[in-house]
């Protein structure tokens, strides 16, 4: 069924984008009230818990960033929020890895979902980079030791001068702004891709690769 388009709107970028979004991501796909029965499996909860843990990573990190790097060492409140940041990161990774394995063994990339898988792997890599710069920003013995050792790895591939793990200012800036920004952007893309295409049908059914 072809859609009738107002001739005056032909060539309108705004209209073209809105029409594309309306087609690709109608509200009933974005917030569906029904799901296939096979979604009632615990493995589908891993993604939601990963997202929830990431929320607390961001919230606790934002509080630490507001009060500044000294705060989490010298005040009990700062230390507590630092601990929240630390443990929410651990929970985030545990469930992200579970989500990754569940999607792998469910071959979640089938039936046109390859890009969803690729963005998921990209999120995993971005998360490792964000956590790595966080460990370097702790300002304690562990961050010193990680920096002194990691510099050899960075130098070996020729990026040590431009990604200087011994430069706290650079690592802190990457950790609180650039890497989380990229991470959150790809989280949005990943979730929108999931909602656009819906969850993949069980592997035991016949489907494309």
């Amino acid at each position: 069924m072809s859609e009738r388009i107002d001739p005056e709107l032909r060539g309108s970028w705004t209209f073209a984008i809105r029409r594309y979004l309306a087609r690709q991501l109608p509200l009933e796909h974005l917030l569906p009230e029904r799901q296939p029965a096979f979604v009632r499996s615990w493995t589908y909860v891993f993604g939601a818990i990963t997202l929830a843990a990431l929320t607390w990573v961001v919230v606790s990190g934002a509080v630490c960033a507001f009060f500044g790097p000294q705060w989490w060492h010298v005040s009990p409140q700062g230390r507590f929020f630092n601990s929240l940041h630390f443990w929410s990161t651990q929970v985030f990774f545990v469930f992200m890895v579970l989500h990754l394995w569940a999607q792998f063994f469910g071959a979640g990339w089938r039936d046109g979902r390859a890009l969803t898988w690729v963005t998921g792997v990209l999120l995993f890599v971005l998360s490792i980079g964000t956590a790595f710069t966080g460990y370097l920003s702790q300002e304690n013995f562990d961050s010193q030791w990680i920096g002194v050792n990691a510099k050899d790895a960075m130098n070996s591939v020729g990026i040590g001068a431009f990604f200087n793990v011994l430069n706290f200012g650079q690592m802190y800036g990457l950790h609180v702004l650039l890497l989380p920004g990229a991470l959150l952007l790809f989280v949005v893309v990943h979730i929108l891709l999931v909602r656009m295409r819906g969850v993949v049908r069980p592997l035991s059914e016949r489907s494309e690769r």
Binding site: A52, W56, W72, F80, S83, V91, N140, F141
Partner: peptide, 27 residues
């Protein structure tokens, strides 16, 4: 589901942070 996950993870990390704190060996 997402709200319950938020609540569950909040309780989990609050307990872990309160009971276990976090590593901070001085530099």
């Amino acid at each position: 589901e997402l709200v319950l996950a938020l609540a569950g993870t909040a309780i989990l990390v609050l307990v872990l942070a309160a009971v276990l704190s976090s590593p901070d060996v001085p530099p």
